[in-house]
Write a protein that binds this DNA or RNA. Structure first.
Lengths: 213, 213
DNA sequence: CGCTTAATGTACGAACTAGTGAGTTAACGC
DNA sequence: GCGTTAACTCACTAGTTCGTACATTAAGCG
């Protein structure tokens, strides 16, 4: 056989092995935290061996950083799809907030990785050339929306886009990141599907009432 | 000497030894997380030995649960001091929010412990008889304020106290818990003293605008 | 003042954990 | 075909980490 074609199962595949490790590692780190995750455990769930983790990534820490990079880039790629330029400012804000709301709910592992990284004071993000200062497409969209609302005299003129982004993130992140202690203390599951629409609408109301006051 | 008096330095003191261990352990667990914390490290920073940790607490996990219990009870004791019955509903809401805002900022270790516990899916809180279902005095106060505001026709009548509490917590917790990744990605320190008043006021505005819309 | 026991210190071990040394085999260009 | 090298396997180790067996000493009581 001359060259491996797409329908041929290659026994050795650099990309597939790497992707396999990264995928398993993402789940393991998100599940157990950086310190709690075990390299041997990751290796076992992989279709390859522990030696390959060191071959491709160098060590536990570099593997964890690679996991963070992949997770952030994937989320940012999703955010870049945001298209709200055709909407009225109020509707655009709601749409943007709901996009974040939905994204967070759809990617609990990412939220867990962020929480874990904050426990470690973002030292790994700081060490990553890819992530340090990675721009946020959603923030650019938000800036434009606020500008349009302000120009139309419908939004107050003393709001910083990053502050609004912070409010949206607070709400959406808290709902996922703190759901366990919240449920244990107050007996309410913030992820209960029956309350989903209520929270989604509430976030929009909160933002619009503030911006138009 | 017959009995140990208060001015006598007792060489053996059950309470002091226990409190010492608990204090050191709180800092260690908040700093490194449950898995990251080392029993030997805690012992070393104590004025006693590792053997005593096992003598008084039984093991790493029970020590961690004891740390959580003490931290939660201390915070709840502070919250119980809330006195807003003499204030107008709007001012009472702001006061309550600012109290939470200040408390969170003053107790970063507590916020870290909560984040860590959420990573572990609150399994230790669930195992603690003291903490499971521990009532929140601040929530009772909030319920009364909302009721008064609603009766006076100044607050909307479709708000759940726990939802308002969630919004307050989201904002205050996010500011502390996610400050590192937020700073790494956006270059803004949410704990910058120069922005403190801005955030404090913003939270109040956010709540009042929503409740009075 | 000696007896009892709660409180404390010392030394150690079994299991785990990140990482590696050295050899092996499949893929691919020539 | 064949040599080179990238991809891969296996067995192993040095250091760590929770936990404990055992010895010891201070405190209080009759």
């Amino acid at each position: 056989m001359a060259a491996p074609s797409s329908d041929t199962e290659r026994q050795r595949d650099k990309d597939r092995t790497r992707a396999d490790i990264l995928d398993v590692a993402t789940r393991e780190f998100a599940d157990k935290g950086y310190t709690g995750a075990r390299v041997d455990e990751i290796a076992e769930r992989t279709s390859t061996t522990k030696r390959m983790i060191y071959y491709y990534f160098g060590g536990k820490e570099q593997l964890y950083i690679a996991v963070l990079e992949q997770a952030y880039l994937a989320i940012r790629a999703l955010e870049a799809e945001l298209d709200v330029e055709h909407l009225e400012p109020e509707d655009a804000i709601r749409r943007l907030a709901e996009l974040t709301f939905d994204h967070h709910e759809a990617h609990p592992d990412f939220i867990r990785l962020v929480s874990i990284e904050n426990i470690h004071r973002a030292e790994h993000i700081a060490r990553s050339e890819v992530l340090a200062g990675l721009a946020n497409p959603a923030l650019d969209g938000l800036t434009q929306i606020l500008e349009r609302g302000r120009a139309a005299g419908r939004f107050r003129d003393d709001v910083d886009p990053l502050d609004v982004h912070m409010v949206i993130s607070s709400f959406c992140v808290f709902r996922l990141a703190n759901r366990h202690t919240f449920a244990a203390i107050f007996g309410r599951d913030m992820l209960d599907p029956g309350r989903r629409e209520h929270y989604r609408r509430m976030l929009g109301d909160l933002l619009i009432d503030y911006l138009t006051s």
